[in-house]
Simulated assay, not measured.
Amino acid sequence: MAGSLSGLKTKMSKNTNLFYMKCTCHSLHLCASYSCKKLPSDVEKLCRNIYSYFAWSSKRVLELKEFQDFCDIKPHKILGLAMTRWLSLEKVICRIVEQWDALQLYFLSQCSEVNNIKPKESANIMLVPEIKAYTLFLTNALKIINELNTEFQSESVRLPYLYNRLEVSVKLILCNFCQTPYIKNKNIKDIVLKDKNHFLPVANICIGTKAQQYIDSENLSEFEKCKIKETIREFYIELISQIKMRFDFEREDLKLLEAITPAKFLSEDELSIVPLMKTFENLYNGDPDDLISQWNQLRLSLNEGKEKDICKFFGLDEPLFKSLIEFIYNLMSLPHSFAAAERNFF
């Protein structure tokens, strides 16, 4: 579809004014999926084993409830990973963390009573302190990606905000393992992820409060703690590498769209509409000079605005700005994900 040689995008771009954008939500899901592969495979195996063990047995669910009552844990349902649900991984991990004590006791009890390798395998995995540390870490790390994913599943206009939000999120992740002065005023494309000169000391790598408190409370050696944090650093590096690979931070057309966000429209002293007109010339009709004049006149007439929603901000029923509003609404129609369309099939 997006191949540079014979993909549909390449073929159509030759003869049309094609605007191409990969689904933001799908891309973010893939970023999270590939970064999770840097963690031990037992983390994903545990998620799948627990769900498959309870999914088709009401008897086992009732048995688990006894342990949930004993541990004073709410008897919430065990969730399963769904490849077609972008936000499922975080919810699965959080549910397992919530039910950890009850699940661990249950599987340990089943080891002696049931001739089945599944309970024994799950019990052994849950007894490894590092595995619980990684699951606790994921409850925090996946939240950043899922918040972005949730935002861009919205049917409201989000494309003009995309790269600003991505840049903020990437730098937030970088702060967990890199020195702040190095990343503060640096472009994402210029950041060298594996430059150890800018890494924080291993002991200072941020892995989330819950995970940090857990490894501090366990009888782990300094070597084991460092190993956990080094693995998590690899997770961060892979996550940012995937984001940089799937989102082109040098796309000028998407950067230009930020000009129609209310904050940008009101805050810049010098902000011309001409670059937008040149880039998206097929999205407006009429006299270019009229469009420029209406842009400047609207900026002069709006000294401040409390409305942050882009649609409401430009929702003017004013003939004086008719051409400008039509152009901006055409820009706002550019899609940022396929989530809204895919909802019709579920």
Rank of each mutant, 00 (worst) to 15 (best):
D287G: 05
L320C: 10
L316Q: 04
K308P: 04
F314R: 10
I325P: 14
E304A: 03
K308Q: 12
K322W: 02
I292C: 02
F313P: 07
D309V: 00
G305Q: 00
P288N: 01
E304W: 03
A339T: 15
D290R: 06
S337P: 10
A339C: 12
A339W: 14
E304T: 14
N296A: 03
K308E: 10
L320F: 12
I310K: 11
G315Q: 04
D289L: 13
L300M: 12
G315W: 04
L302E: 12
E307W: 08
F327D: 10
D289V: 13
F338G: 08
F313C: 08
F321M: 00
L291C: 06
W295A: 06
L331P: 08
F327A: 06
C311N: 11
F338M: 07
P335M: 08
L302A: 01
S293C: 04
D287R: 10
K322H: 14
G315K: 08
F313K: 13
L298P: 09
K322S: 15
D317N: 15
P288G: 02
F321S: 03
N330T: 02
I328A: 05
D289Q: 15
M332T: 10
A340R: 15
M332E: 15
I292V: 06
N330G: 01
S333F: 05
G305F: 05
S293Y: 07
C311H: 02
L298S: 01
N330P: 02
Q297W: 04
A339Y: 10
L302W: 02
K312E: 08
L324D: 11
D317F: 11
D287I: 03
M332C: 06
P319C: 00
N296Y: 11
A339D: 11
P319G: 00
C311T: 05
P335Q: 03
F327H: 07
D290Q: 12
C311P: 05
L298F: 01
R299Y: 09
G305T: 06
N303V: 07
D289F: 13
Q297N: 15
D290A: 05
F338R: 13
F327V: 03
S333R: 12
L331C: 12
E304N: 09
